[in-house]
Nucleic acid binder design. Structure first.
Lengths: 115, 115
DNA sequence: ACCTATTTGTCCGTATGTATG
DNA sequence: CCATACATACGGACAAATAGG
């Protein structure tokens, strides 16, 4: 896959790295079930710090696009970044809402009304 | 406010720090508009690393509980952690959904159905 | 069952940048 | 102009989970 990083760009490196993965997933360069190269390898090949790559991976995990596990690496779990993000947010939202006593029906109303 | 950290606990330090703030907000020890002590001060007083405190603050920002700004610090923006989190998620969700062509009505249906 | 290598997770330290006051 | 405070990036160290021999 294509990794693009430009140290002079206004966006942080970790965000550029995350975008590279999102782009690759979006255009089918990498597909569900595939494993991304280890953060160490990416860092070495791009000459950026290991932590910077790990941070990008964690961003993508929070978006629901990949799954991260020690010893295993980063596995792509969704085909469309946008959909994965929405699905992830819905899941989190339903969980958090229930913890303050809001069910799906109340949530639906709340969203439809516009806060 | 009360900062509790236990290096031997299973939870990460940054999560323990975030919990301390959540607790303080929940019980009214700190209120909306108040500023949390600078990450540097917290780090020094608890003898933890600056980044660990900053990470905790960033978690709380993602939850919608505080606002972070360079030079200004961390300002509490919500009275109830749970509500802030839900509101933050709703806001993000509506935004992300619209970027993939989903409006509030479709979202509401999607949430009500249960994935 | 054991050991080793791999890979992410956390924490520490340092340096520099950027926005605020 | 200068001090404050968060943001990013680099580096190193160790822990924990996984996979494979």
């Amino acid at each position: 896959m294509l990794w693009q990083v430009d140290p002079t760009a206004p966006q942080p490196l970790y965000e550029q790295l995350a975008s590279s993965v999102r782009r690759a997933v979006a255009d089918g360069t990498v597909t569900i079930g595939e494993r991304l190269p280890s953060a160490k390898d990416v860092a070495a090949s791009l000459d950026v710090n290991l932590h910077t790559v790990l941070r990008a991976y964690q961003v993508l995990r929070d978006e629901g696009l990949i799954e991260l596990r020690r010893g295993r690496g980063a596995i792509v779990t969704a085909a469309h970044p946008g959909h994965a993000r929405v699905a992830s947010l819905v899941e989190q939202l339903v969980g958090e809402a229930s913890s303050i006593g809001l069910g799906r029906a109340e949530l639906a109303k709340l969203i439809q009304k516009g806060t």
